[in-house]
Design a protein around this nucleic acid. Sequence first.
DNA 1: ATATCTGCAAATGGTTTGCGGAGGA
DNA 2: TCCTCCGCAAACCATTTGCAGATAT
Lengths: 137, 137
Amino acid sequence: MPKVRRMTRQRRVILEILRNTKDHPTAEWVYEQAKAHLPEISLGTVYRNLHLLEAEGEIRELDCGGASGRYDGNSLDHAHFKCLECDRIYDTAGPLELNGQPFDLEGHMVSSYQLVFYGVCRHCLNKRSEKQDNSQR
Amino acid sequence: MPKVRRMTRQRRVILEILRNTKDHPTAEWVYEQAKAHLPEISLGTVYRNLHLLEAEGEIRELDCGGASGRYDGNSLDHAHFKCLECDRIYDTAGPLELNGQPFDLEGHMVSSYQLVFYGVCRHCLNKRSEKQDNSQR
DNA sequence: ATATCTGCAAATGGTTTGCGGAGGA
DNA sequence: TCCTCCGCAAACCATTTGCAGATAT
């Protein structure tokens, strides 16, 4: 573990990208975006910085299943909704408030959480009803 | 996708193992256990059956981060607690009730959820206080 | 000055899959 | 019988890592 962290161009760009999207992108997507600013950047660097930024509490990796990890520029505890049809991940207000305070749960000390709802999203529900309208026409 | 599922010895053993543990084991662990009953079983078969059983709604794969997937013999929606120190996963009652009914969340149709709390578990908290006791002695 | 960071490319490791034979229904 | 399932081993693919040079502080 290094003692002092350097704010390299790569790290700044990666953080910027995550801060400026409401999606919950994969490392690969971040890499593609970053190349627009730093054509020489490598995927390994993206992964290294994603982990570094997560360790610093700047971003968060989501546990939502699927082949590749998703990252969230908002590191505050909040709930997500993942569409089982298109794999989009949405932020939701969620029913929980942690208030930054660890709390006791059955003897365990809870310091954070990930709440993921699964189902079919607005987007895909609309598509479904469009299809139905067409077939009824 | 096959039309009729066969209840093979392998599938029965794998399901049995998951039903009879309160842990949330990895595929590898299930494989090791299964070998005690079926020495010839292969890891590929374990994975195939875990997916099959999940598709049938018999078991559930957990999204809790970490290198390898965890499986849960209880497929009903419920919350988990994962220790950040020892990686154990505990069942918890959790604050949510879905009642088997999909509900609307900001326009999305929610059919299931995964809620994972993170923190330090009873077990590790005890270890900590034991250490402290020793150093104070 | 110097220790951290980067690009590159190879290694890793959990998971998946093609194949030919086995075995449930 | 026959079609699904198995064991085996190779393939896959997201992620990690060793190295030598670059760079932030």
